[in-house]
């Protein structure tokens, strides 16, 4: 954990960190919009956002300009006598209908995106992510059912080149280009599985098994964080997903299956009984 730096030092280090993270997928200082998009879902989300943002900027500009113009033209010194008109039905009808049309122009692409996200394609791989206070446990039921915990690297011993509070000891690993179904649940309180670069977010709810999917387009390490307040160490529950080519992934699976214990229904019920 860093000491109490001065504001000036903070600025300097901010710039330096910026440079260091230039190629990584972690958030960068002075970023004003979305970070990297590594899935089609995220690209579509960004497109919808930009579409709505453009409309929104126009609306705010319209309101600000109209107010500014009214202040110039109708201030008491220039316009001492106020108009007595209080109704103009056609104008009122117009400003009721116009927003409906604008909303229609937002709703259509919005529902398309929602349908794309909700409709899970045939998955080549299923991974289960289980939220715990305060770490994630990933298991690979399609590959023999091995499971392992993913815990934040302590700030004092973050591996070189990796971001503080985002680096973990064991990442979730997925093959590039494959449709991966991610099942999310929780063993204690509500957590949220949030991976901005992939456009993914779904709550980890105790007693429920939620499902989402992704197809990572580019190899790399992507970072996210638990995004639902979950107690003492809510700030320290990152998610790191490493996407690698299929052959690398296969090799990783062979290795992981020997390194990590298999979690079967029997071991789970043994744990519950305990």
């Amino acid at each position: 954990m860093r000491g109490r730096g001065t504001v000036v030092l903070g600025f300097v280090s901010a710039m330096m960190l910026d440079a260091r993270h230039g190629l990584a997928q972690a958030p960068a200082n002075w970023q004003t919009s979305f970070g990297v998009s590594a899935s089609e879902t995220k690209e579509r989300i960004v497109a919808l956002h930009d579409h709505i943002l453009l409309i929104g900027v126009c609306i705010v500009a319209l309101v600000a300009i109209l107010i500014g113009f009214a202040l110039l033209r109708f201030r008491a010194s220039r316009h001492p006598t106020a108009s007595k008109v209080t109704r103009m039905p056609w104008l009122e009808f117009g400003w009721t209908i116009a927003p409906v049309l604008v909303l229609g122009a937002i709703a259509a692409p919005s529902l398309q995106l929602l349908a794309y996200e909700s409709d899970i394609p045939d998955a080549q791989l299923t991974i289960k992510a289980s939220g715990h206070q305060w770490f994630w446990r990933y298991s690979y039921p399609d590959n023999g059912g091995f499971a392992y915990d993913s815990i934040m690297s302590p700030p004092a011993s973050v591996p070189a080149g990796e971001p503080r509070l985002l680096a973990v000891d064991n990442r979730m690993v997925v093959p590039v280009g494959a449709v991966v179904r991610i099942q999310v649940t929780s063993s204690d309180v509500v957590h949220s599985f949030f991976m901005p670069a992939l456009g993914l977010q779904i709550y980890a709810m105790p007693g429920r098994l939620n499902e989402t999917w992704t197809r990572v387009e580019k190899p790399g390490v992507y970072y996210g964080q638990c995004n639902q307040i979950c107690g003492l160490n809510h700030s320290f529950m990152p998610i790191a997903i490493e996407a690698m080519a299929q052959p690398d992934f296969d090799a990783w699976v062979r290795d992981a299956a020997t390194r990590y214990p298999v979690v079967s229904a029997a071991t789970i019920s043994a744990q519950v009984a305990k």
Binding site: M1, L17, A26, P27, F34, R164, Q225, C226
Partner: peptide, 15 residues
């Protein structure tokens, strides 16, 4: 937009 969760007391340095 950069993905900073709310309700965290400490944040990654990029924020």
């Amino acid at each position: 937009l950069a993905g900073m969760p709310r309700r965290i007391a400490d944040y990654p340095d990029g924020f």
